[in-house]
Amino acid sequence: MRRAALGAGSALLLLWPFLVPRYFVFLTSLVVVNAIVAIGLNLLSGYTNQLSFGHAGFFAVGAYVAAVLTLRAPGVPVVATLVLAGLATALVGLALGIPCLRLEGLYLAMATLAFGFVVVEAIQNLDWLTRGNDGVAVPTAHLGPLALASDAAKYYLVLGVGALMVAAAVNITRTRTGRALLAIRESEIAAQASGVHLAAYRTLAFAVSAFYTGVAGGLFAFVVGFISPDAFDVFLSVDFVAMIIIGGLGSIPGSVVGAAVITLLYDWLAAFQNYRPLLFGLILIGCMLFMPGGIASRMPKWTQQAQ
């Protein structure tokens, strides 16, 4: 069952640009980008109980690194650009994560919230690098001789990277590291007693989470084609948190589904104009009241990863 579903799903994803109008290809790319962020955030929140309201900040760092790099050094292949975006963001993540190690729950959420504001301020004020409030039109990404200009090309880039990131996340959760993270999720005290170095793993989770989000930010810059500080406000961080809570904390399929639900809801509700935030808010409340474990808790057994 599981294998058949995976096969059919992969085939559908690969053929997707030939099957649907361009707009849906673009929308699917956005879903995958958000799913990568959601997975990254879930590795942090779902596994080590560190909630972040600053992931829009990491996302922005990744997006700007990718955009500025492509502007200044057009010859760099997109894969290298994305890796650099991810690494730069991971460094920023470490710079924030290490001093925040002692913080938990609410306090960490507050520190990351403040971090998000500081990043937006920094982008606005580093005009010489980021063009400040004017924003940056992101040039087309190149992969060797290929210019990834069409929606389909961008989609395959996003899909390829997304698949790698999902596979890596699934593998992380299965390795020694993953078991350590799971142990931390279940009980920090028990994990420590079993020899899990709590500080090291929490820092690692922060860096990995930032890496995921930075890579996604880079992809976002290419998919949308224009970035400016207004894109990365605190409400975007909140959307990311909503994705993993609706999808299910500590679940990778849940992260993907949560990202899809929130992204598609935004698209669908745009037509309701001033009723949009009203409906969106009601849906969030309804989900939480009637499905507190997130969608992952209601998904069929075979979708759950082996744990």
Partner: peptide, 14 residues
């Protein structure tokens, strides 16, 4: 707590 956070967040939008 996370769930309640999202609920009040939804409430603020509403």
């Amino acid at each position: 707590h996370f769930d309640v956070l999202i609920i009040t967040l939804g409430l603020s939008l509403v």
